[in-house]
Amino acid sequence: MDPMTVDLAATPVRDLNQALHAPEPEQRWRVRNPRGAHAIACGLTRPLSVEIDGHVGYYCAGMNQHAAVTVNGNAGVGVAENMMSGTVRIRGNTSQSAGATAHGGLLVIEGDAAARCGISMKGVDIVVGGDVGHMSAFMGQAGRLVVCGDAGDALGDSLYEARLYVKGAVKSLGADCVEKPMRDEHLTELAGLLKAAEFDEDPAAFRRYGSARRLYHFKIDNAY
């Protein structure tokens, strides 16, 4: 069956979201002409498939639960913010704070992610095909961030227990973030994440970073 098609050049985002939140929505959706509009397909709670052709604005697929949202373009600030479950895939680049505070699910960014990718992540898996900007995984609490390209300044600053895997260069590590050995269990975990993201990369080419856990208790040495 053909997907339900919504043209945002003619339909307001609010009507689209209402339709996606309906008690028994269609299963497959195609959204045309997003033209940078905000909050597209946010607050979904069902295992729908939504494919968006074009660039989206802020908070696309925000707080997603169970749905599979694909953007054939770039995404603005806070894509998949606070996602709980499901999959969000961005074929292009994302702006800052991609996957911010997300608790679960899988966020795949095929291009580059800007600053603060995975900020305060709480369990989500984020796999980035390109580079990530500065302060990525800042205060990351749980989940995994995989970067196939390079990472910007202050990666993993003030990290809690999120695990970070980077293939390329890391410009600098943030406070309390350190490189850690890649053991078999990590190679296995990483291979699974790359496979889920459909990226053909060799896990052995990555390095692992995590929390040194020196900020876990207030001490005079922690002060800047």
Binding site: R35, G36, A37, G54, H55, V56, G57, Y58, N74, G76
Partner: peptide
Amino acid sequence: MASEYRALA
């Protein structure tokens, strides 16, 4: 240059 993509669109 723009603050948001929708202006570039």
